[in-house]
Design a protein around this nucleic acid. Structure first.
Length: 388
DNA sequence: TCCATACCTGGGAT
DNA sequence: AATCCCAGGTATG
């Protein structure tokens, strides 16, 4: 959401991801993709891999892009079944959700989600995206170009743990979030072991190539692993309950995480009887109560259901805006929909996506840019970037 | 615990 | 033109 690094050019969305530039486009029946690999910045994949220095042709069977897309877009869960389940237990969901079928929670990289949501505090979508853009272009590895536009990946925490970074980010317009990002990077690099963040992940939703493991019993407050992850994240600078839950949900695979932001708080008051008596204001206790309520109502994937309602609400809001306000319609829509415009106009952006068909077919093979608009390079998986 | 207040920035509204 | 207000929160007293 939000802090998404995806960029749209005409009808195609592109982003540097896992050492490649991934481009997506969809029509009524298919999702099309194209991947352009960097020769020098290929991510290590599953541990036992090809010998260093060996080159592999970009044959389809060697390309994990399709697996990456399936993973990233979280295409496995049966949405029809989930929607049915949520509708059966919640009349409000049943009423609001049907128009928004197809919304999925992306499986983002945990570190990227953390950085993005730290930037999101008391901020607007447009600026959050610009900040992520700046962060990557100034500190992240260059993966390649589309036309003359460079695409950078996320900078690793160690890059941001440099003492100079805080003032530099201030200079770049990050405001008080400059300190949060720097301090969080320091905490992660010097206060925790390697892999600490990713180890907070839901074992039922492992990163690509890892095996699934059981995550334990569901409780009103969520599974034990979720509660641990949430608590650990809270110790980071600039991370409060809302940001922690966003990272848990979008970055760590904990479906029961329910981020309660201002919008969700409005929904909770309007449709779920919050806002009175004991829970008249959004204190920590109320925050937890809202999460518990939604978890007991919707279950293990409460965060997903909540995102559907959230998206529904934003949509209605934007429709009201464009109906009542007679200004540049395009502009109004772009601003009010923000990253969740994904649900209507784009296959991917922000944290949620909508796909009319999950069938994916290959549009291009990796080769030199068709019309010069996309530059591609031969896949080279032998070279591994130093792990960081 | 709960509540109030400050916090960077930039665009839109008054 | 100047100022106010707000935006997907968090830290502090």
């Amino acid at each position: 959401m939000s802090r998404s690094r995806w960029r749209k050019v005409e009808d195609t969305w592109s982003c540097a991801l896992h050492g490649r530039i991934l481009s997506l486009r969809q029509d009524a029946t298919h999702l099309y993709y194209q991947a352009s690999f960097s020769e020098q910045l290929v991510e290590p994949l599953t541990p036992p891999f090809s010998a260093p220095g060996s080159k592999i042709d970009s044959l389809p069977e060697d390309d994990d892009t399709e697996a990456l897309i399936h993973h990233y877009l979280n295409l496995r869960p049966d949405l029809t079944k989930l929607y049915e389940q949520w509708s059966n237990v919640d009349a409000n969901f049943k009423k609001k959700a049907p128009r928004f079928a197809g919304v999925r929670i992306l499986r983002q990289d945990a570190w990227e989600a953390l950085v993005g949501f730290i930037c999101s505090s008391n901020n607007n979508i447009i600026r959050i995206s610009q900040m992520m853009e700046k962060l990557c272009s100034h500190y992240g590895p260059l993966v390649g170009y589309i036309g003359v536009t460079p695409y950078h990946d996320m900078p690793s925490p160690i890059i941001l743990a440099d003492p100079k970074v805080e003032s530099q980010l201030r200079q770049l317009g990050f405001g008080y979030r400059a300190k949060y990002l720097y301090q969080t990077a320091v905490q992660i690099c010097h206060g925790h072991d390697d892999g600490w963040l990713d180890n907070l992940r839901n074992p039922e939703s492992p990163i690509m190539g890892q095996k699934v493991a059981a995550a334990g019993e569901m409780q009103p407050g969520g599974r034990a692993g979720y509660r641990v992850a949430h608590e650990q994240l809270l110790a980071l600078q600039g991370v409060g309950p809302k940001v922690a839950d966003c990272v848990c949900l979008m970055g760590l695979g904990w479906g029961e995480a329910v981020p309660v932001d201002t919008h969700v708080w409005q929904i909770a008051q309007r449709d779920y009887k919050f806002g009175k008596g004991k829970h008249s204001s959004l204190t920590k206790a109320t925050y937890d109560a809202v999460g518990d309520r939604f978890r007991s109502l919707w279950g293990k994937e409460a965060g997903w259901a909540h995102s559907v309602l959230f998206t529904a609400d934003l949509r209605v809001f934007s429709e009201r805006l464009s109906a009542k306000i007679d200004v540049d319609t395009v502009k109004v829509e772009a601003e009010s929909l923000g990253p969740d415009a994904a649900a209507t106009s784009a296959p991917v952006i922000g944290t949620k996506i909508e796909i009319t068909e999950t069938k994916i077919k290959r549009e291009f093979l990796e080769e030199e840019g068709h019309d010069g608009s996309v530059s591609s390079k031969t896949v080279s998986r032998g070279k591994r970037r130093k792990k960081m």
